[in-house]
């Protein structure tokens, strides 16, 4: 058992630290991702899967992501949420690596963890990731592209043209997928080995512990139990309540992604109906209209009176001068 610990390969060492650190930090990061999504601060584009994974699997991606984005003109999405998540990942990862590192040192390596282990492991992992991940990205992308075009051209040959479409798709996928996954796995193993080699110095500088296995288990177990459990529970519950309230208050009431068929027209809200105001307004309007009608009737009556006077005068004038050029009023016309 002791030999097994001493002869632990760099790959095992790297995997033993990074894998549980990823799972330890992931739930906390996910909570923030969710909040940013509900606030509309994150807009993922086509590379969502990759970007999401890279953000969540830091610490190795913490410096690699900006390198890839800037150096390779890769597009991962928009919104301040991505940058904020990227910054938030740093303290979360340092904490996760600290918890995992101390457990790993005591349980698997039987060594005393040093102070500030989380920070030490974090910067070492981040530096390796910053150098290695862009190389991995370029290599895997180039290999996959080459494998796809190679397999395509192979199936363009005359003697393979008889292969039906469904079979061809599956065979092509299997062939280029095997090459791409093989290269990816190989490079991941190399990357883990690099991480293991880089943190081996930290491991070797840690003194051996002479405590019994049971004692070590109790120690690392107690390291994970907070000194004040009531406070921890209250803080966690409070945090969960605050996050839940923020989530529900920021959640869009209607879908933020309406389908083309169902886009809502921009309709302005109708003003609130106030019965008394409406009645008063209507009464005023009625009174105004009544006054107007009265005025019109009076005007009409006056006009008629004027007409009657005019008719009488015109009748006298017509007797006197029948060849007058002025047109006759309509009432004087007869069919």
């Amino acid at each position: 058992m002791s030999n097994e610990r001493e002869s632990m390969s760099p790959t095992q060492l790297g995997l033993g630290i990074l894998w549980p650190a990823f799972w330890t930090g992931l739930p906390i990061k996910l909570a923030f991702v969710l909040l940013f999504l509900s606030l509309g601060m994150v807009h993922f584009e086509t590379r969502i899967g990759l970007a999401f994974l890279m953000l969540l699997t830091s610490p190795v991606t913490v410096f690699a992501l900006p390198t890839i984005v800037l150096g390779l003109e890769s597009h991962i999405g928009e919104g301040a949420g991505i940058a904020l998540l990227f910054l938030l990942s740093i303290p979360i990862d340092i904490w996760a690596l600290g918890v995992v590192g101390r457990t790993f040192f005591l349980e698997r390596l039987r060594r005393e963890p040093q102070d500030g282990l989380g920070l030490t492991l974090w910067w070492k992992c981040a530096v390796v990731g910053a150098v290695f991940l862009p190389i991995l990205w370029v290599t895997v992308s180039a290999t996959t592209q080459a494998a796809i075009s190679g397999v395509h051209s192979m199936f363009e040959m005359d003697f393979l043209k008889f292969v039906p479409v469904a079979e061809r798709i599956s065979i092509e996928l299997t062939l280029w997928g095997t090459v791409a996954v093989g290269v990816l796995l190989l490079l991941l193993v190399i990357g883990l080995s690099l991480v293991g080699r880089v943190i081996r110095g930290t491991v070797e500088s840690a003194p051996h512990t002479t405590e019994s296995y049971q004692g070590l288990i109790t120690r690392w177990d107690l390291m994970r139990v907070p000194a004040d459990q009531g406070l921890m529970l209250t803080a966690l519950t409070g945090g969960a309540v605050v996050l839940s309230l923020l989530f529900w208050s920021s959640l869009p009431v209607f879908t933020p992604h309406p389908h083309d068929c169902c886009k809502k027209p921009d309709v302005k809200a109708a003003p609130a109906f106030k019965p008394l105001d409406t009645l008063n307004k209507d009464e005023k309007m009625l009174a105004q209209l009544a006054v107007q009608v009265e005025a019109l009737e009076k005007q009409k009556a006056e006009a008629e009176a004027e007409n009657d006077k005019g008719k009488g005068k015109a009748g006298k004038d017509a007797v006197k001068a029948p060849a007058a050029t002025a047109p006759a009023p309509p009432a004087a016309k007869k069919p």
């Binding site: 992931l26 739930p27 996910l30 909570a31 991702v33 969710l34 999504l37 509900s38 993922f44 969502i48 989530f247 933020p256």
Partner: peptide, 13 residues
């Protein structure tokens, strides 16, 4: 909590 967050994130996405 992690699964809840993943389902919600997918519902948004």
């Amino acid at each position: 909590a992690a699964v809840f967050a993943c389902i919600c994130a997918l519902a948004f996405w």
